[in-house]
Design a protein around this nucleic acid. Sequence first.
DNA 1: CGTATTATTGCAACATAATTGCATTAATAA
DNA 2: TTATTAATGCAATTATGTTGCAATAATACG
Lengths: 123, 123
Amino acid sequence: MKRRNTPAKTAVLNILQQAQSALSQDSIEAEVKGEMDRVTVYRVLNRFCEDGITHRILADDGKYYFALCLNCNEENHDHDHFHFRCLGCQKVECLKQQVQVILPQGYRQNAISSWVTGYCKNC
Amino acid sequence: MKRRNTPAKTAVLNILQQAQSALSQDSIEAEVKGEMDRVTVYRVLNRFCEDGITHRILADDGKYYFALCLNCNEENHDHDHFHFRCLGCQKVECLKQQVQVILPQGYRQNAISSWVTGYCKNC
DNA sequence: CGTATTATTGCAACATAATTGCATTAATAA
DNA sequence: TTATTAATGCAATTATGTTGCAATAATACG
């Protein structure tokens, strides 16, 4: 299943590149209003994830946010840092700080999802 | 708006007390099948939250989980610990470890939501 | 360039989690 | 015992995301 370059794909990729932060489907949809269907945005984003171009993270508001992969290698997406979601400007960003958790005996760790909500320095 | 004691309220409270872990609406609903409506479960749980009887935490599976408040005081719910969700038995539990995060300059912290998924010692 | 292949799209429908409106029921106070 | 109104059941709605399918269009190839 070879990928094809389409206006929809290009438009969404541009938005992600200019954002420099994680975006939800609905905020992307707002920017491409009229250009493409709601479902297409979801499908383009999910394909980016399959291709290792983006992360997909479920935020503490119950929505998925998508961000370009920067420090990820092909198979290992780097998620073990804190995420910050601003209640003012709605921006989501990755914090430098790694999450460090020690599980009880016999527990095995699969994934980590750590969110801090509040107000960023501009809000 | 004074609260009333109803069979629904009592049943849900009993389930939460026996569980000693956080439960999702659907798992509670499964236990009271036929006794009450789906919506009633939601409403009973939300009222518990309003009254400071339970926490409501959005897990990294996108669903809300409810747990009795233990170390919370009236106004300050204690949420700043890690939560563990077992992919085997679906149980959600609060870990002892507190989440410690240092935000960048000028950022204000409002809430924390930290999840670890994996397998517990029984799974 | 013209044509064939099939990835991509749009639209409608569906899935799931949770909430809301409203008439009815029932817990509490008098 | 009755009045008040919180709580309930049911249907409908909202919100987020996915799936089926026919139509469209990006790419490869002669």
